[in-house]
């Protein structure tokens, strides 16, 4: 694994007696696209704020870009907060340039970079527009650009896709992939699994302030048993005798679902059917989606928390 740009060790945050985050440990390797998943109220934003030293953990330690506090390496970090907003009366380029100068970019260079970024991301004609005149999607793009205008090594995006239409979500995905291609590390939180599935090298799932999964997308999928959908004329009950079969159920007449034990090859079901002489009309092995994994991992908690 590459050098870690971020490492949390047993980080907890209490508000009074209420535990917002408990015992959170993980590390993010350099150059990785790191997804931070979890239902509402799982403690994602609190964790990100602690990483940025906006909030202080009650206990535990955070090492970021080799420093013990984000305050020391502010200029090398980019941050897009969950709730989006801009200075309404400022022009688009001026907002981007302003945040870049606050991160240590010289004024003239910041101005040039702001214009270049807007141009590259299709907002060149809106550079002189006041941000209050921009559409929500455009404003959000401006904000993302403002958070990366100083070319940070580590970019933290809190819910960057929320509120964007599919086209703009695609544009933002490209931007994130572009950052990765240039060797930057990106941590983003989301509860839209498709983005995580497409983008992430590495995932962390939180629920009720605790980590409940960490690993790659494939690791996550392996958490759920693979399923096989079968159609047949006749009873498939004899399949239960095969090894590796966890459960068998008839969803509708003639349509069956087999849940396999983890590690079982779906092909063995097909082979078993031939051996047993069962009259199959269709066979489909499905990979569990990240969505299923997410619901499996946090569904109960999310419902609990929402109640």
């Amino acid at each position: 694994m590459a050098l870690a740009v971020l490492e949390l060790k047993q980080v907890s945050k209490f508000y009074g007696d209420y535990p917002a985050v408990q015992d959170l440990s993980f590390s993010v390797p350099a150059g990785c696209l790191f997804g931070f998943l979890g239902p509402n109220g799982a403690g994602k934003t609190t964790s990100l704020r602690m990483i940025l030293d906006i909030l202080r953990p009650t206990s535990g330690s955070i090492t970021i870009l080799g420093a013990d506090s984000a305050a020391r390496v502010r200029d090398r970090l980019g941050y897009l907060p969950e709730e989006k907003g801009l200075y309404k009366k400022m022009k688009a380029w001026a907002v981007i340039a302003y945040f870049a100068t606050l991160k240590g970019v010289p004024t003239a260079a910041a101005k040039k970079r702001a214009h270049a970024l807007l141009e590259r991301h299709g907002l060149g004609q809106f550079a002189e527009a006041r941000t209050e005149a921009l559409s929500k999607g455009m404003a959000q793009k401006v904000q993302v650009l403002a958070s990366i205008a100083h070319d940070p090594e580590l970019v933290i995006l809190d819910e960057p896709f929320s509120g964007l239409d599919p086209v703009n979500q695609g544009v933002l995905e490209e931007l994130v992939l572009d950052l990765k291609a240039r060797g930057r590390t990106v941590i983003f939180s989301t509860h839209v699994m498709q983005h995580a599935e497409r983008l992430c090298d590495h995932l962390l799932v939180m629920a009720r302030g605790r980590k409940c999964f960490e690993g790659s997308v494939d690791d996550a999928r392996r958490l759920l048993a693979p399923r096989v959908q079968l159609r047949a004329r006749g009873d498939l009950a004899p399949l239960r005798t095969l090894p590796g079969i966890d459960a068998l159920s008839e969803l509708t007449p003639g349509e069956w679902e087999v849940r396999l034990r983890p590690g079982t090859d779906p092909q063995s079901v097909l082979a078993g059917c031939f051996t047993l002489g069962l009259p199959l009309t269709s066979f489909e092995a499905t990979r569990p989606s990240l969505h299923d994994v997410f619901v499996h991992l946090v569904g109960a908690e999310a419902r609990e928390a929402g109640r």
Partner: peptide
């Protein structure tokens, strides 16, 4: 209040003390 209601405050605090 502008920075607070726009939540710009977080961006500011990730950049300055």
């Amino acid at each position: 209040i502008e920075e607070k209601s726009n939540r710009l405050i977080e961006v500011m605090l990730s950049s300055v003390t």
